[in-house]
Design a protein around this nucleic acid. Structure first.
Lengths: 342, 342
DNA sequence: ATTAGCACTCAAGCAAGGAGAGTGCTAACA
DNA sequence: TGTTAGCACTCTCCTTGCTTGAGTGCTAAT
């Protein structure tokens, strides 16, 4: 059932051609472009065989062949060599990110932009929920008469804050005392595991400063409940408008909506993450809605949790380039995260 | 040159019909739908007059009429009554924003979402640059062994922060001292007016703590140069995909790109802001790129600066609804800002 | 001033025909 | 046995011409 060398070369020719042009590929153009020493007729015979085996298909009798999803899968699994971004591109990415190591949002933005720019596909980045990180440190900081800032810092260095009003009678020392109290009770807990009951025990401990404690509790509660769940950031969604497979306005709208509407993409991505590059082609996708798209993605480790980056494009995708880019970017991200946490 | 009552009613009929259906309106459907006591032939005569005056145009001889941009302009200026959102909708908006008053980003998000949801057009919000606000307060806060947080607070209550490494020998008191120093020099300056020279004088003042000062200076410098300029946030860009005038893929792509690509929309908007609702129809727009779109927008005051909100849609727009919604939302925003700064 | 009637115009939709690309099959060839 | 040239066949796409229907402008009657 496996292919001989000539069949593989023909399959590859067809894939490269079809990916580039989005047109069915005829026997003549296979010999013309790839100068194998065989005639078009021979290629036709091989193509018929490849079709029978399911690697190619024919839109209609008198058209050329296009690779089937099985054909792409075979190519990806058995023949493909990743095409990495150029050194200049990687350099560029580093430069863009260098200034922003501290601003995780900007990093994500920059990475997404890079992915979609380089590949011309839509990119996505999944950032693990803040709620999975741990409470490290809380501080109440006086900022002006009658106001204080509640500052909450997590183990991965994320900083959240909220302003509260406080009675003017409260002294900085009081604030420090209260901060310490918070820290004692909450340190090391995962944010999502901090329950209202924890906050309540806190409240009971210090009856005489009830008012300010309440304010602080409220702020913390608010911070926790407003802190984002897993976030999905998408870049370059408009790239898909160029693909001829979406010249149908209705299809286009469905896909763009899927990409733009918050959370919709998340529904559609597989849960499993490996730390190598995963590729899902067309029908291999779990969800109906992207059965005519392909995914190329990889996981990255941020502390104890995993995030994902990836590309989404038509089945007729430059998998080699997509996979190479995703892998390179994954490495850069992990490097940055290492730098950031040190 | 001004229109008599009957002409106005005919113009209105045609506008309402055309906006609803995107099809040229014939004389028959004018009488049918709006039961004036006149015949189609009479309407035809009036329509010919209106066309001569430039309020209507005819795509081709045997089609109905469509309103010209001049026609829309006349309607907007002389006949239109705003259609405000329902009380439930306004209530909804308040609810959505209530929890988020402190998180300006979320407010902007929510407002944009509301605007585009209610009107089915793309919305934009321009947030004035942080750099225009004033330095109010800087604090250096120890967060763990060897690390401190530089906290910068502006007059409108915006909080920026950056982590720095510090020698372990530095005590909290040192940090406070340095903070005070910063505050003395910088208080009240506009962020964008803080020059490197200011920072340098600071540096010279305190030679013996040079190292930590340098770190802090670097952090502040970094915060200032990375703080965003005027920001443009767009919501519901995909709404325009529904409009039949953009069934042409190429047009659609141009507009969507304009909307999605950072900063492109800003280029295209007029600089002038009034605090009532402004409407720009098609060719009235400064920029070539949106000469087939219309803008409905208004300014809102945030402290001493002005921001803008608005809608962007096809010339065939429900101006009444757009204007009503923009105006209502403007009021809600100002209300929120008032609450927030108090 | 309004209206009915009618000839005229034009876009959109449909069918028929030709061109072109590409196939599968057959028969000849190494 | 594998390869190749040749040829008839198929199917899409494009063009052309025709028909249909909506809507107009003009004229003559009210």
């Amino acid at each position: 059932m496996s292919l001989d060398e000539r069949q593989r070369r023909i399959l590859e020719s067809i894939i490269k051609d079809y990916v580039a042009t989005a047109e069915p590929v005829g026997s003549r153009s296979v010999v013309r472009k790839h100068a194998l020493n065989i005639s078009a007729a021979t290629v036709r015979n091989e193509m018929a065989d490849l079709e029978e085996m399911g690697y190619l298909e024919q839109p209609h009798t008198s058209a050329g062949r296009i690779p089937s999803e099985k054909g792409f899968r075979y190519y990806v699994d058995c023949m493909m060599e990743n095409e990495n971004p150029t050194d200049e591109q990687i350099e560029l990415l580093h430069q863009v990110l260098e200034d922003r190591v501290q601003e995780w949002n900007d990093v994500v933005q920059g990475v997404g932009h890079f992915l979609s720019q380089v590949t011309n596909y839509a990119s996505f980045i999944i950032v693990p929920s803040v709620k999975l990180s741990q409470f490290q440190n809380l501080q109440l900081i006086p900022i002006q008469e009658g106001q204080a800032l509640v500052l909450l810092i997590t183990d991965v260095g994320l900083i959240m804050h909220r302003k509260i009003n406080i009675p003017k009678s409260i002294m900085p020392d009081d604030l420090q005392f209260i901060s310490a109290l918070f820290n004692r009770v909450l340190r090391g807990k995962r944010l999502k595991e901090i329950k209202r009951s924890d906050l309540m025990t806190l409240r009971d401990e210090l009856k005489n400063r009830r008012h300010i404690i309440d304010k602080a509790l409220e702020a913390v509660d608010n911070l926790l409940s407003n802190s984002s769940d897993e976030r999905v950031v998408i870049s370059g969604a408009l790239n898909i408008i160029k693909e001829p497979e979406f010249k149908d306005l209705d299809k286009l709208r469905r896909i763009l909506t899927l990409l733009e509407e918050d959370g919709q993409l998340r529904e559609v991505l597989p849960d499993h993450i490996s730390d190598t590059v995963d590729i899902l082609i067309g029908q291999e996708n779990r969800s109906e809605d992207i059965r005519e798209m392909s995914l190329v993605m990889a996981g990255y480790k941020t502390g104890s949790e995993m995030g994902k980056i990836g590309l989404i494009g038509p089945v007729r995708m430059e998998y080699w380039k997509a996979a190479g880019t995703v892998e390179s970017v994954r490495q850069v991200i992990e490097e940055i995260l290492r730098k950031r946490n040190s």
